Computed example of a mutant assay.
Amino acid sequence: MGVTGAGKTTVGRALAEALGADYADADAFHSAGNVAKMSAGKPLDDSDRQPWLRAVGDWLGTRGATGGVVSCSALKRSYRTILRERGPGVWFLHLAGPPDVAAARVGGREDHFMPVSLVTAQYAALEPLTADEPGLTVEFVRPPEQIVEQAQRALAEIQIHPPKEVV
């Protein structure tokens, strides 16, 4: 989880591969209307996000024994609650970091619908992962391999009750 430009796709794919789990990018679950709205530089509101979050949560809920990793902004606690309700066992990896780095990364993209103008809106909406939510917060400025290793160590520590899915 994290804002646009945090490296969710890069880290998510690498973590899924390391865990032998299925992978999905939550962007693929957006409606055409949501994509058009974001492409126009307009942030999504909660009503735009509800069907999208339910679809992502449902995907997580169907991963079975192998689990799954999905790259999803999950900016608010209420969004993460939806994901946990629809995909029991969800564990979050919050990629956190400085807005200027996220903006520079988004500005350097050529093949993504999210404009750099929405980075500020995402930071304004972000409710960081809290101590009572299952997961780990790491700095996204670290190399992806280090983030994946840290996530794997954290997951290994909770093997008594391993999560089924990682967001």
Rank of each mutant, 00 (worst) to 15 (best):
50 Q>F: 14
146 Q>G: 06
113 F>G: 00
158 I>N: 13
14 A>P: 07
85 E>K: 11
167 V>E: 01
116 V>P: 07
165 E>V: 12
73 S>Q: 05
99 P>D: 04
15 L>P: 08
52 W>E: 09
98 P>E: 15
73 S>C: 05
96 A>Y: 02
138 V>A: 10
118 L>D: 15
53 L>H: 02
81 T>S: 12
145 E>M: 11
27 D>F: 12
58 D>W: 04
132 D>A: 11
89 G>D: 11
72 C>W: 15
90 V>Q: 13
101 V>F: 09
27 D>Q: 12
98 P>W: 10
43 P>C: 09
133 E>F: 13
137 T>M: 03
68 G>L: 04
121 A>D: 12
104 A>Q: 08
147 I>S: 04
113 F>I: 05
39 S>Q: 10
62 T>W: 05
87 G>L: 00
130 T>M: 08
157 E>Q: 14
56 V>G: 01
28 A>W: 09
2 G>L: 02
52 W>N: 05
23 Y>G: 02
13 R>H: 03
86 R>N: 00
94 H>D: 00
6 A>P: 02
136 L>D: 07
34 N>M: 14
45 D>Y: 03
59 W>C: 08
9 T>Y: 03
166 V>D: 05
48 D>K: 13
121 A>T: 04
43 P>L: 01
140 F>T: 06
76 K>N: 01
36 A>D: 14
134 P>Y: 14
136 L>M: 15
